[in-house]
């Protein structure tokens, strides 16, 4: 009954997994990964976990608007909003937009930053000058104001944050990966590959990229948090996508509906806690990558 394919597939899976270089030796990083796993499960099964449609306006049994109900009242786990929507269901669905925005933005930032850094560092010369002056300019643009203006000019969409991050936030990753590439370029094995006639593309893919990858992951795992925080800020300021439920949208809704003076803590505390959990999970994972990269720095 043994399937000859299974071990090979498992091997491939394990290799793909190893390619991610997950920091599995650091307790804080493992905690971060566990938090991510939990949120991913919640996001996937959001329709099953949520008790209501997050945008549905709910009514009580005697046909009154189910507004500002406290947790537990009428069976709403975390109460309802001023417009009679279920807080718990919004919280569950919010994990979807957070993960989608966080992961795509982080991927874009890490990808663009790594390409810019490797190209600038490896080729040097005017390519390097051009790309690094571009990075200088990106450092001169105030990020949040830039996202606000961009979001106001484009159609409201959750992708505005991703676009803005791809346009601006590659700068940090790019600079760091450039200096890493500069030192890698002078290593003996790169020199040897060049002398033996390997093409630039081959040297970059074989010898440079695998060595800068943990740095890309480090900056990527920080960028997830940045993206989620930025989306929350943008939604809070009213430039978000009104059709998608996010934690930032919930906070804006609560703030605008006077939840603060009504002391509806059950409404605006949970979304903030979710953001903190998922963003700090990213920080914890990034510290795990730091320990892989700079073992001497082990603190």
């Amino acid at each position: 009954m043994t399937n000859p394919d299974t071990p090979r597939r498992a091997g491939r899976l394990r290799r793909a997994f190893a390619g991610l270089r997950l920091p599995l030796h650091d307790p804080l990083a493992i905690a971060g990964l566990a938090i991510y796993a939990a949120f991913i499960v919640i996001a996937i099964f959001a329709p099953q976990i949520a008790t209501h449609d997050p945008t549905e306006i709910l009514f009580t049994d005697d046909f009154q608007l189910a507004a500002d109900l406290r947790p537990g009242e009428d069976g709403y786990i975390m109460g309802t909003t001023t417009l009679g929507r279920d807080v718990f269901s919004q919280l569950v669905w919010g994990s979807r937009s957070a993960l989608v925005i966080g992961l795509t933005a982080a991927f874009m930032v890490a990808l663009i930053g790594s390409i810019v850094g490797v190209v600038a560092g490896y080729f040097g010369g005017w390519t390097d000058t051009l790309l690094m002056r571009l990075a200088d300019v990106a450092f001169g643009i105030p990020f949040l104001p830039f996202v606000i203006v961009l979001a106001a000019f484009l159609e409201p969409s959750i992708w505005n944050v991703v676009i803005a991050m791809a346009l601006i936030l590659w700068r940090d990753t790019g600079r760091v990966i450039r200096s890493q590439t500069l030192t890698l370029r002078t290593r003996a094995y790169v020199e040897a590959a060049r002398i033996s006639g390997s093409s630039d593309v081959k040297i970059i893919l074989r010898h440079i990229v695998p060595n800068v990858l943990p740095l890309s992951f480090l900056y990527g795992s920080i960028a997830i948090g940045w993206a989620i925080l930025t989306e929350a800020s943008i939604s809070f300021l009213g430039f978000g996508d009104p059709t998608s439920i996010s934690w930032g949208y919930m906070l804006q809704d609560a703030y605008a509906s006077q939840a603060l003076s009504k002391r509806s803590y059950y409404w605006f505390v949970p979304p903030g806690l979710c953001i903190i959990l998922i963003v700090s999970a990213g920080f914890f994972i990034s510290r795990g990558y730091e320990k892989i990269l700079f073992p001497k720095l082990d603190r």
Binding site: A232, L260, F268, G272, F283
Partner: peptide, 9 residues
């Protein structure tokens, strides 16, 4: 990791 505006709220 806190959203600043949430802390303010």
């Amino acid at each position: 990791a806190m959203p600043e505006f949430w802390l303010g709220m």
